[in-house]
Every structure is written in C-alpha cells, then in structure tokens.
Design a protein around this nucleic acid. Structure first.
Lengths: 247, 247
DNA sequence: CAGTGGTCTAGACCACGTA
DNA sequence: ACGTGGTCTAGACCACTGT
C-alpha cells in the first residue's frame, strides 16, 4: 500500500494537494512510525519540484500534522486523538449531538426584523435604523434544553425566512450562504460564566441564578464585514466548547 | 511616508518579512483606504520576485489582515479593533490585568511533585508512577481573587522550583522554557460553566454553588508531546476569555 | 481581451546541526 | 563535509473575472 500512493497529473487536482493528502493518510495510518520526510526524498518520490513539496508540507504544518526542524527534517506530530471540534464548528452542535446518539432537536422562535440593541448594533457596525433578522433558537438533547441562542443576522431588509426554514437549515450561516452567497470566514468569541437570568432559566429548565456559560460571537466575511452577532447561554457541565490555539 | 518604506537587502531580515511588515503598517495606518495590492505592483515596487511577494501576502492572509480574490486582487480586511487576545495568551492574564490598571497579583501555593490524578495522567500520556510538578495559583485584581488554577507540569523529576520562582516567572510556560528549553506550540482547550465546589468557592471568595467558568487546557510541544495540564476556575462575569476561529 | 491570483518548474545561495 | 530546511530568482501555463 505504501508504494501504491502516487499522484495523478491528469486529474486536475493540484499536485501539492494530492501529495498533502497522501502524506496525511500515511501519517494517520503509521502514526509516529512514519519516519522523517525530507524535501529531497519527496521530490524524488513524487517527481515534482521542491516548491511543490514545500507547499504540501507547509499546509501539513498549518494543519498540525507535522513539524519541521531546520537541518533535521520534517516529522509527524505525535498522535493526538482527533476530537470533533464540537461546538466551535459554528452551528454544528446539532450534528455533533446526533453523532453522540443524543437525539437532538432544534426549535426556532420569535423570528422578526428589528433594530437590534445598541451593543449588537455596535458589534455589527450597523447604520442607524438598520434592521437585522432576529430569532431565538433552543437546542435539545433527549428532550432536555441545553442551549439557548439569540441570533442577530445582518441581511437585506426583505430577508425574512420562516422558523421552519431556519430549523431545517441547521444553522443561520448555512441559510445566509444559500440565500445570499455570503460566506463566514472568521469569528471572534468571548466566553464567560454567569448566573442564569429568569428568562434564561426558564428557557433552559433550570433555576434562576444557576450557572450558565455565555458565549458571544461575531462572525465576519473574509472582507471583515460582520454579519452575525450571536449570544449563547449553555447548560452548565453539559455543553463543553473545545478549541485549539497556537502558542 | 508612504514611499519612504523600502526594503533593505543588507539587513539580513528576510525580504518577505520586511515586505509583510511594511504592508501591515500601511494597512494599519490607512485602514481600508489602502486600495488593492496586486502581486505585480508589489514586485515592481520592492524589486523582488513574485514568489517573495506571494510569501508576504500569504502570511498577511494567515494573520487575517488581507484577503485575496482570484482574478480580482488582494484587499485589506475591514478594520477590526485589535483586542488583546486576553487570557488565551496562556499565562498572560496578569499582564493583561496590569494593562487595565487592575493592580493584579499572583499567589502560588502547594508546590510539590506527585503522581497526578488519572484524568491528568491520561491527558499527559504519562507512564505509570511518573510524577509531575503540581501547584496551585490564584490571581487577584484589586485584592479580589478572580482565577484559581491547578497546574500539572511534566518535567524532570529533579525540577522543583520554589513558589517565589513560579510567581516571578509569570507563567509556568515561561519557567519551563527557561529551565529546560521546552517550547509550547499548541494548546487544546475545553470550556464550560459549573457550580463552584466548596474548595473553589473558598479560593474565589464566593458561595458554594455560585457559577464559575471551568477551562481545561493541555499544552503541547511542536512534537505533539503534552507537557502541561491545567484547570482554571474563573470568577463569573469578570474573567472573559476571547479567541478567534477561522470558518 | 487584459489582468488577476493559483500552480508549477529548475535552478541558486544560505544558516544551521550532525557526524 | 554533508544534508537539512529557509530564502530567493526568473521564468511558465492556467482558470477565472471584468471590460
């Protein structure tokens, strides 16, 4: 199997992507057993230029699969069981819970357009009087409410989907992309603990003052234009957000 | 000032880094006013090859300062006030609070070496009976305890610094790097809300059952070797962690 | 059609670590 | 001395977008 993996120059798939994929698969299979890969051995193996190999290796570094050491070589990063990024896959919570067999469901309510609170308008950089799509979403697992989201979505003033459309879309982002071709490229998150307000407690079936996790997120297009402001209140001890940072 | 910025081929600083720095400064200064930068205009301006310009632009994309669109050009990302990454700059909380004029202080206690709990040993991938450095740190602002950290640090069995050394180091990572040349390259975080245990409540001067933010972190070297396991319990509504994610 | 970024080649010199 | 990754050059062809 090791020598079967070669690139196909007629496939139209960029060579560096094919090489990256092959190496990623080998690292996955052989674990840290896969020895050092040098640029020279790879250029010979795949019959490509050094720059092409370097582009593949550079992306593997970005993805955290290998690390490179000057005058030593390129080595696989020690195996770390690939967890699902859980809830940070924005809007992916339902699918994540489904994978866990938690029988998730989603309930969207209070869909309307209005001028948002000051804090949200600032975060989205709105013009005065500019309206946004506003809705509330609760996510349940096995019948228990786990997460309460309030979403403010910058969109054309005639954009007013039904609750059913929002529920079936899985996430507001997907709907926004399908409806207007707007792609979210970057998100900023702030997270802290708080005591549940009366409203939050009611929505999450807990007592007022019980702990909740608050997660505020601003999502932006690649142009840097903020398009979604979202505030989550999550059930304590149950919803755990995971993320990775360099350094 | 715009035309004064040129590269210095004798400085020893890589050309692409000089170009990146110049462009980043210009974007910072001119905001989105800085028009499109094309690869061709930049190669002519700096008298370097296209590959060098591309490396600079690619890093600016990674840093979120520009975005590129095929057959259109390279454009600055719309200004987003560069906040301090706050507490995700692992160990940087004290410095962050200092910047806010919060008069922070740090108190380290219970420094010893021992075999950690099962959960930690698993997270660090320890051998049986392998001991780690264990300590507790509290961070105060204006005399109020805000954050309680329990830290497990994989290190040679003769590594046993004093509480004073740990306090002055600012963070365990800095000490680890200075003492053993170990560099942390990647961290995995899990965060959720919880009710304060009796111990946590006492340490944070709150009531048992009050909300706290729990943040568990595993830090790894670039080889993927886990070296630090840390669990924070943070004061509700006060400590807010911020982070950024792509997608 | 001209201009853009995406991909690819075939070279070159260098700093650095290991043997 | 040798091999490594880091940097740099000067070309080439392509797909795509806007005119």
């Amino acid at each position: 199997m090791t020598e079967a993996s070669q690139i196909d120059r007629r496939s139209g798939v960029p060579l560096y992507l094919q090489i990256k994929q092959i190496l990623a698969t080998e690292i996955e299979a052989e674990g840290a057993g896969a020895g050092a890969m040098t640029e020279q051995t790879l250029t010979e193996r795949f019959h490509v230029s050094r720059a092409t190999v370097r582009q593949a290796l550079h992306e593997l570094v970005q993805d955290g699969l290998v690390y490179r050491e000057r005058s030593k070589g390129t080595f696989p990063v020690q195996r770390m069981d690939f967890e699902r990024p859980a809830t940070l896959q924005v809007g992916g919570l339902v699918g994540y819970l489904a994978d866990l067999g938690m029988n998730p469901s989603s309930e969207v309510s209070d869909v309307h357009r209005a001028v948002p609170p000051r804090e949200v308008a600032d975060g989205l950089g709105l013009e005065a009087e500019e309206t946004v799509l506003i809705f509330t979403r609760r996510i349940f697992a096995n019948g228990q409410p786990l997460s309460l989201a309030r979403v403010y979505l910058r969109s054309p003033s005639d954009f007013l989907p039904t609750p059913t459309e929002l529920e079936s879309a899985g996430s507001a982002i997907e709907l926004l992309e399908r409806a207007h071709g707007v792609r979210v490229a970057r998100s900023e998150h702030r997270v802290w603990a708080s005591a549940a307000s009366a409203q939050e407690a009611s929505a999450l079936a807990i007592a007022e003052g019980d702990p909740v996790l608050v997660l505020e997120t601003v999502m932006r297009t690649r142009e840097g234009r903020p398009v979604i402001w979202r505030r989550l209140a999550d059930h304590a001890d149950t919803i755990k957000h995971t993320f990775i940072s360099d350094i």
